[in-house]
């Protein structure tokens, strides 16, 4: 008897638990449908709100306008190319006139240039004067320029020649320009 009573109680308890489980499963199903619908709606809205076609249309319009001005664009590109090249040339010019001007300005009174050879890698100067003092002044100038690294990077005195006949002194210098 007592066994049967227990059996009835167990069945009832089991049924209640089953009903709860069904409810839980239903709720999970509703939640899944809701989440899926929410995501689907959200993604649809996001994809619809992407302004790609409008941007592509805008791009086509601007490109068409640019195509009408392509002659101007090509001219501008040509000018830019030429100006870049010209700028490079002007910056890389050796400015030998400035080197010559510096040397001329440093020539003391009574000193004349007998020979002068200037290229990008070498300067050969032969100067002459009746005064050894003036020759010395020019040597001082050259040494100053070398020490201050203003005009020469190396300097060699190849010779000082005295010509008794003409009473002149000649200085032969060899230098490397900066």
């Amino acid at each position: 008897m007592s066994k049967e009573i227990n059996l009835i109680y167990s069945k009832k308890k089991n049924r209640i638990s089953q009903e709860r489980l069904i409810k839980i499963v239903h709720r999970i199903a509703y939640a899944c449908v809701g989440i899926t619908a929410l995501f689907a709606g959200g993604i649809y809205y996001l994809n619809q709100s992407v302004p790609l076609p409008a941007l592509q249309k805008q791009e086509a319009t601007i490109t068409q306008n640019l195509t009408l001005s392509q002659q101007k664009i090509l001219k501008l590109m040509l000018i830019k190319d030429r100006l870049t090249q010209i700028n490079t040339i002007m910056n890389q010019r050796k400015n030998l006139d400035e080197t010559i001007a510096t040397i001329i300005s440093a020539l003391p009174q009574g000193v004349s240039v007998n020979s002068f050879a200037l290229s990008t890698g070498k300067i050969d100067i032969t100067v002459s004067s009746h005064s050894l003092l003036a020759i010395n002044q020019f040597i001082d100038f050259s040494i100053n320029k070398l020490n201050n690294k203003e005009l020469f990077s190396t300097l060699t005195i190849n010779g000082i020649v005295a010509d008794a006949k003409s009473q002149t002194y000649s200085l032969i210098l060899e230098a490397t320009p900066l």
């Binding site: 010209i86 890389q92 030998l96 240039v113 020979s115 002068f116 050879a117 990008t120």
Partner: peptide, 11 residues
């Protein structure tokens, strides 16, 4: 545009 690359003064 040009650039002077060398100068030779003989006299």
């Amino acid at each position: 545009l040009s650039d002077v690359t060398s100068v030779q003064i003989n006299s």
